[in-house]
Amino acid sequence: MYRPAKGLFFAICYPILALIGVPANLLGIVILSSGQCGLSQYITCYLVAVEISDSLVIITAVILNRIGRIYFQGSVLSTTPACALSNVLVCATRDVSVWLTVAFTIDRFVAICCQSLKTRYCTEKTALLVIGLVSALSCARNVPFYLNYQPLYILDGAPWFCSMKPIYYTSLIWQAFEWLDHFLTPFLPFFLILLLNALTVRYILAASRARRRLRDAEIQGDQEMVNRKRSIVLLFAISLSFLLLWATYLGHFLYVQITGEGYLTSLDFNHPDYILQETANMLQLVSSCNNVFIYAVAQSKFREELRKVLTSPFTTVTGCFKQLNHGKTPSR
């Protein structure tokens, strides 16, 4: 579960992450929703859904959970009900974001490698259905955690902070539930993204060799090959970013389970275990605000739309000044 990071470094980094992440995700939502990026409607549905879920991760995990508990200790956010709800919302939004990335990877795998299934699966209706199911199931499976929190202490009748009930550490059911939770996020998504991308690369390489044999003389002008390359750039960029930023979190979880050291909450901020733990958490959160930069690098049309959005205020102001100056110009 999420615990508030401490230390000057994290106290500075999380506000920066929020200041970058929220505007970046909102820009992504606006630009993708305009439908001017040259992407099909169902792909746009997936990408907009990912951007919305990433925005919710930044709001819940970074602003409410991290910044709120670093800078506003003793506020209502530190009461047991708010603390428990915050932790559940963080995990739920994180799961939605991760599994929507998996859903997008599956969609691209079907579109590229399963031509017979493509016309039935790669549709806007299917995309909306998958997005709805992923969101509902991700939220539902985190609800039990809310019931397992108890106050860390009670002051003047008010419950403050939250800790797991003792039964969480002794019950086989809860231990199985925790392992299932970590298996579903991030072990299974990590494995699926690696597997599907490997299969997609193998299919593309095989198809490319076949096309070269058939059209060796015209390969430079093969528009289908060009479109296929453009189609997979976005997939691989998003997938690689996810794998790299979650690798530290995954490695730290395995380290804790193997060594039995446990998660650290109150320790010297310079302790290597504490630094590793909080760095893993931060990198995992960074994955929720970097997609816009990936789109800007991988998609020329997205860059063009981004330029229009960023320059539109200046264009509007300049146009107003021109109209005012034109109106003040004396007629001859």
Rank of each mutant, 00 (worst) to 15 (best):
Ser40Lys: 13
Ala127Thr: 04
Val292Cys: 10
Ser135Lys: 04
Ile275Ala: 03
Tyr255Asn: 08
Met225Ile: 07
Thr126Asn: 15
Tyr71Pro: 01
Asn227Leu: 14
Ile52Val: 15
Tyr295Pro: 00
Thr315Ile: 01
Asp95Gln: 11
Cys114Trp: 12
Ser97His: 08
Tyr71Val: 11
Thr185Gly: 00
Cys45Leu: 02
Val22Pro: 05
Met1Gly: 14
Ile294Trp: 07
Tyr263Cys: 08
Gln150Asp: 06
Ile16Asn: 09
Phe145Lys: 05
Leu172Ala: 10
Trp174Lys: 04
Cys83Glu: 04
Ala103His: 05
Gly221Pro: 00
Ala82Gln: 05
Asn270Val: 00
Arg303Met: 02
Arg215His: 13
Leu155Cys: 06
Asn148Phe: 07
Phe9Gln: 02
Phe191Thr: 12
Leu39Gln: 12
Ser312Thr: 04
Ser53Phe: 01
Asn197Cys: 15
Ser78Gly: 10
Ile67Gly: 05
Gly35Pro: 07
Gly28Val: 00
Gly327Arg: 01
Ala158Thr: 14
Cys91Asn: 11
Thr105Ala: 11
Thr80Met: 14
Thr248Gln: 08
Lys6Arg: 08
Val256Arg: 04
Ala5Ser: 11
Leu56Pro: 05
Thr329Lys: 00
His326Arg: 00
Leu244Ile: 15
Ile112Ser: 14
Ala140Ile: 14
Ser55Glu: 13
Ser266Asn: 14
Ser288Glu: 01
Arg108Leu: 02
Trp179Met: 13
Phe9His: 06
Ala127Asn: 04
Ile52Leu: 09
Gly35Glu: 05
Ile173Val: 11
Phe109Lys: 01
Trp179Gln: 10
Cys289Trp: 03
Val292Met: 09
Val134Thr: 13
Gly319Gln: 10
Val102Cys: 12
Lys125Asp: 09
Pro23Cys: 07
Thr279Gly: 12
Ile106His: 02
Ala280Pro: 06
Lys165Thr: 15
Ile204Thr: 15
Ile154Phe: 00
Leu250Ala: 10
Gln36Val: 00
Ala11Cys: 04
Asp222Thr: 12
Leu244Asp: 06
Leu285His: 00
Gln257Arg: 12
Tyr46Ser: 13
Gly262Ser: 05
Ala158Pro: 00
Arg66Trp: 09
Pro313Thr: 07
Ala103Thr: 08
Asn270Glu: 08
Val317Gly: 01
Phe236Glu: 09
Met225Val: 12
Gly38Lys: 09
Met1Thr: 08
Pro151Arg: 09
Ala11Ile: 01
Ile112Leu: 15
Ala158Gly: 00
Val286Gln: 03
Leu194Ile: 09
Thr93Trp: 10
Glu305Gly: 03
Phe161Cys: 03
Lys118Tyr: 04
Tyr249Leu: 07
Ala217Met: 05
Ile219Lys: 02
Ile275Leu: 09
Lys165Cys: 08
